[in-house]
């Protein structure tokens, strides 16, 4: 299997006043195309920072990220954005829907940014898949947390991404709703054969993925396949 994400010697530090704070160091791992992959660790271990670096949302202080065959260090901000628009899907803990757009418009945004003509049609199909076709004209504020996350799921798959990053996708949901969303996520992922990278502190969720990378204090503790897979 080819590697869709290659991380090599990644390091990230922040400056806080006069002090340098190292959040990530010596991070090296790969993600296979079509694989489901989770990053777990306690709060402050650098999970979300790593996810951001993997998706090109931030730049490392050292090391490099190769996403879908592109070395992110060689791309500028616009080029990284274009790559995300073509190849990447996102799911956030706080859903991150645009409050000024309706459900359908939110789902269509990635395709709209590409200038795709059938954006709305594809948006409706995805809303139907997540069970919200009848709520297409509603605004995010008119939806429950679970519904908002389902819209975010639909949006994440709207551009048929090669890789999908999910940051604590059930963090703001109750168990029952969280379970429904996760089932939907895995179903959609399977149907579209997308690589899935999940950041979570929920070990049950992590165990559903094929590979688990454990972080602590900004360093990799283990990176191994899950037992069930």
């Amino acid at each position: 299997m080819s590697k869709i994400l290659k991380i090599n010697g990644l390091e990230k530090t922040y400056t806080s006043g006069a002090k340098q704070l190292t959040v990530l160091q010596n991070i090296t791992f790969d993600v296979e195309k079509g694989q489901t992959f989770s990053i777990v660790g306690p709060s402050g271990s650098g999970k979300t920072t790593l996810l951001g670096l993997c998706a090109g949302l931030d730049t490392p202080n050292a090391g490099n990220v190769e996403l879908c065959g592109h070395d992110l260090n060689t791309l500028n901000e616009d080029e990284r954005a274009q790559l995300r628009n073509r190849e990447v899907g996102f799911i956030f803990q706080n859903f991150q829907l645009l409050p000024t757009l309706t459900t359908l418009e939110n789902v269509s945004v990635p395709l709209e940014l590409q200038g795709a003509k059938q954006a709305a049609k594809r948006g409706m199909e995805l809303l139907a898949q997540v069970g919200l076709a009848d709520r297409f004209h509603h605004y995010p504020s008119q939806l429950s947390g679970g519904e908002q996350q389902r819209v975010a799921l639909a949006r994440a798959f709207s551009n048929s991404p090669s890789i999908l990053f999910a940051d604590e996708p059930t963090g703001n949901l109750d168990d029952e709703t969280g379970e429904k969303v996760i089932k939907l996520l895995f179903d959609l992922n399977k149907a579209s054969n997308t690589t899935l990278v999940i950041v979570t502190h929920d070990l049950d969720l992590a165990n559903r993925t094929q590979q688990i990378l454990r972080l602590k204090g900004g360093e990799i503790i283990t990176n191994q396949p899950t037992v069930t897979h």
């Binding site: 616009d78 954005a81 628009n85 073509r86 000024t100 945004v109 940014l113």
Partner: peptide
């Protein structure tokens, strides 16, 4: 609010 929206659009792949 505008920054948040713009960052989100950027994350979803919007160009400058």
């Amino acid at each position: 609010q505008r920054i948040k929206e713009s960052v989100l659009l950027r994350t979803l792949g919007a160009k400058n």
